[in-house]
Amino acid sequence: MKFLLRRLALLLLTGWAAITLNFVLPRLMPGDPIEAMLARYQGRLDPRTVSALKIEFGLNSHQGPLSEYFTYIGHTLTGNLGTSITYFPTSVASIIGSALPWTLGLVGFSIVVAFCIGTALGAAAGWRRGSRLDTFVVPFGVMLSAMPVFWVSLLALYFLAFRLGWFPVAGGIGTSQTVSISGIGSIISHAALPAMTLTLVSLGSWVLLMRNNTVSVLGEDFIKFGRAKGLPERVVAYRYAARNAILPNFTAFALALGFVVAGAIFTESVFSYPGIAYYLLQAVLSLDYPLMQGIFLVIVVAVLCANFLADLLYVFLDPRIRLESRS
């Protein structure tokens, strides 16, 4: 319990830090980004929106910065993320609501598949350290983790989708289809290429991590003891080595997740996939700060929730953590 409470406190603190960054960054940055944004949309927004935006970002406001800050936190916590400028008058929350499921599907699938394949490959390589498999897996893992995601996506898009026509070139679903049971085939065929690229590039870090974990677990006494008891190699490998080596993977989940989310930004951008990262990029390139801030916050919150799930799983899997809190 103590472990979970500590983690929960950290995650809440991070969420607060994200909200604060949203509030502070546009006010601190040189060159008045908000003025630049308003200048860019001069004449295209009606005066009421402009004054609402000015108040939201602390220009022309009669409040002090501190009470502005508390108003901002209040709005954010109640789900009031403002109005998008490029998609005016759609609210930021409703854009995020429609984009989020696409990204959750893409990222969720990729992270689970990459975790399973990568961990299995890394465990096999670490167990047979120095073997032919190991000498292949290490450079292969390093290569995968050095792959520029956007480049792999571009190549896949060009060769597999454009030249060979095996996959759709853009979008999340066929133009004639609607999101329903009958459209599921179209959804899967559109998601296939982005999901495969994302899985491929996030595989490398799991492979290297699990390989090193396994190598360091193999030096432990309980492995020698298991062997000395005369247990079959298979039992030592799975029930003694792999079971313990996999635990640090859960604590490394935060990093891995950050990596996959970063990857999703590139894959969604290259494949024009209608997920949240695609809108983030559109917002950034068109200086739509309310939309950008909203998406930043939602991504951080989603990452925090996923982290908490990983922590729960970790406590469930590692009896040491559970016992520590009881004593």
Partner: peptide
């Protein structure tokens, strides 16, 4: 560590003149 790095990078870069 928990904050997704690239997203943070993009947001900071977006404000830079």
């Amino acid at each position: 560590l928990v904050m997704p790095g690239l997203v943070l990078l993009i947001v900071i870069a977006a404000y830079l003149p």
